[in-house]
Every structure is written in C-alpha cells, then in structure tokens.
Amino acid sequence: MTRGSTLPAHPLSPLSGCIAIPAQTRSSPTPLLDGFNTAPVDEAHRTLLTCLRSVSWARRIADHRPYPTLDALLAASDEAAYDLTWADLAEALTAETLPALPEDAYGAAHTALSAAHAAYEARFGHAFVISLAAVPPDERLDRVLEGIRSRLANDPEDERVVASEELRHLGRARLASRFRGTGP
C-alpha cells in the first residue's frame, strides 16, 4: 500500500527560488577617516597616540588600515585594546592625567581630588583613569571622586582589569571624537 501526500498541493509563488537580500547600507568614510587611511604610517601612529599612549595599540590599528567606516575603526580599537599586555597598559597609564575640573569648581574640590588621586597612585602605582564620555559635565567631578574612592577598595589585580577597561573606553571615545571632527 502506498501513501500519497495528505496535504493539498500548494501553488508556488512566481518568485519561487528567488532570495530576498536586504538592502545594505554602507556609510562612506569621512574626509578625516579617508585622510587617516591614506596617511603615512608614522603620521597615523602620531594621530593614534593622541588618543591612547600605547605604541603597540597604535601600531596595530595603523597596520590594519584602511577602515571603511568609523565603526570599523572603533571595533579595531576595541580589539587592539583587549590584547594589550600589562606593560602596554602601564605605558598608556603613564601618559594619563586626571580629568580637568570645571572652571567654576571650588577650592575644596581641587583639594579633595588631589588627595584622592594621591591615595590612588600610592596604592596602585599609576594614574587613575575613568571615561567620562557619557557623563554630563555638571556630574563629572562627583563621578571622578566617587570612582576614585570606590576603586581604592579594589584588589590591585582587580583594579588592573578596571583600569584597562577604562583605558579602552577612553581610547574609543577619543578616536570617535577625533574622526567625527569634534576632537583635537
């Protein structure tokens, strides 16, 4: 006994066998990114070192040019930052300084920040770094003071991880600012 199909035949659509491919939007590089992509390697290194003072990070990003979009450059920045050794991170940390206080900050804020930073450097042996890219300007002083105080309780190994993540964020934010035309 043979069994046939139990379902009625379904008529095929006239587009049967065609594949729908979504439209791909690809933003073109900005003039600043075009200039970076075509710059001599030493110029590209200098540009990158203004964003994060790690020679290996800058070399890795420059060596993988050209970048079709800013997002591709930022992804490369993240990847290069994740692969930094402790020596590379230490190199980058030596060039970092505390974020500038707002011009209208009162004297006690300067004193509190200086004391907190000195305690941090004494405990961990490097500058305190924190990315303030997403923090409104009027909240930055509080965020820095809160960050230093809370991170002083970290184990040195844990703080290394936090500091490296903050450096990654700083490098990314500085690159984005530079190549959007809003940075130095």
Rank of each mutant, 00 (worst) to 15 (best):
E96I: 00
S150K: 12
A176C: 08
V144K: 07
A80K: 02
P66M: 08
R178F: 04
T50F: 00
A92M: 07
P22W: 02
P137I: 04
S164L: 06
C51Y: 01
G17S: 08
S13P: 09
R59W: 03
Y120F: 15
R26G: 05
R59C: 00
A176E: 13
S28Y: 02
V144E: 03
P40F: 00
M1Q: 09
D155S: 10
H45P: 00
E146R: 14
G35A: 15
E91K: 09
L84V: 01
D104L: 08
P66L: 03
H117L: 00
H110K: 15
V129D: 06
S13I: 01
A109N: 10
T6M: 11
P8Y: 06
T97P: 00
P184E: 06
F124A: 05
D71R: 14
V162H: 10
D142K: 14
D71V: 09
R140V: 06
S164A: 15
G35T: 10
R3Q: 14
T47N: 06
L89C: 12
E79F: 01
C51S: 11
A112K: 10
L15K: 09
R143S: 11
A81I: 02
D155G: 01
T85L: 09
D63K: 02
M1R: 09
L89Y: 01
A23Y: 07
L15Y: 12
T111N: 01
A23N: 12
A112D: 14
H10T: 14
L89G: 01
L52V: 04
G125H: 09
A119K: 13
G183A: 11
P40T: 04
G125I: 09
D88A: 03
T30Y: 09
A133K: 12
S27D: 08
S28W: 06
D142I: 03
R3Y: 05
G17H: 10
H45W: 11
E166A: 12
C51Q: 04
A76K: 06
N37F: 06
